[in-house]
Amino acid sequence: MFEAIAFYLFAFLTIAMFYITVTTSQALYALTALAAGMIFISAFFFILGADFLGAVQIVVYSGAVMALYAFGMMFFDTTREVQEKKGNQYLVVGLATISAVLAVLIFSAPIISDNITALYPVGTHGNTQEVGMVLFTKYLVPFEVAAVMLLVAMIAGIVLAGKKMDESLTLMTEEEIKDMRAEKMRPKDLK
């Protein structure tokens, strides 16, 4: 009973939040709604018994990813209104088709795969221990690849974003800034 109440409550909340995210024209609403939606999704993980995944969802998505986006929003000066694309008729048709196909696939998937057997059955230990055991035996190589990927991404982020970070705009005069901007705006790869 509690499970059903929790499921429907959080399903409603998640859908509402994500709907706000994609429809609002106020960038701050989008950010807040998305972060809230992430937290509500972690509730599903808790209901499903994937405690560790839920905690990781909160820590990584809400704690780090969304904060980075917020940082980016301040950086790109889109803390307020965002412009929308012009409406596209083909878009709606395509979207409806994709949704319909997805829905059919999803309803048929459990029927098709009824006789599936668990490769790594959920045991009697706590979720965290089991996740650890599977992660560091069967999925050790993907785990390390993911770690290397994160490292590469971090370095890439620093290298890309850190360029010319030591140039202080506040210490320059207006003319210098103008010159710098002009330099940047000039199309460089025209011969």
Partner: peptide, 15 residues
Amino acid sequence: NIGILYILGVMGVGL
């Protein structure tokens, strides 16, 4: 059984 992770997560949300 993930008490500390939960605490860390919620404190992170406090931001």
